[in-house]
């Protein structure tokens, strides 16, 4: 029974990781690629580690496999957020079809700190460019 469960988890995990790689190649901008690689690939590795834990049926291996899963589930969102934040500040272009960008004008471009709703509006990147260009 455990062998069949393990095989099922392995196939599901591999499918998720393949879908993540497809998304990274096919999606049109960085933030969508980040979304594909972070969520789908993390779930895929989680499934593969659970499969390994089921396969070996030993407490030591199960603990290690679960440690990998817990660690990946903790670090993947942090890594994606840090990378997305860095990319946003370096003005990586969004997809042409993007309808709204709620962060626009809410970040101070020089300090990278979030300006609250009561704070004066932060100039948009193109406004800053115009000032510097003039």
């Amino acid at each position: 029974m455990a062998a069949y469960l393990s095989a099922a988890f392995m196939l599901i995990g591999a499918a998720f990781m393949l879908i993540a790689a497809l998304g990274v190649v096919r999606f049109p901008d960085l933030f969508m690629r980040l979304h594909a690689s972070t969520k789908s690939a993390t779930l895929g590795v989680g499934c593969l580690m659970v499969a390994a834990a089921l396969q070996f049926e030993s407490l030591a291996i199960t603990t290690r496999a679960l440690a990998v899963v817990v660690f990946l589930f903790l670090t993947a969102p942090v890594g994606a957020h840090v990378l997305g934040r860095a990319a946003y500040f370096s003005r990586i272009p969004l997809w042409d079809g993007t309808l709204s960008d709620d962060l626009r004008g809410h970040y101070d471009a020089s300090t990278h700190a979030l300006a609250g709703p009561e704070a004066p509006r932060v100039p948009l990147p193109e406004e800053v460019d115009e000032e510097q260009g003039a």
Binding site: A14, M17, A21, A41, V45, L48, A51, V68, A76
Partner: peptide
């Protein structure tokens, strides 16, 4: 890197 982790598990 994530794929490599899964590869090693497999």
């Amino acid at each position: 890197a994530t794929l490599a982790v899964g590869f090693i598990a497999t």
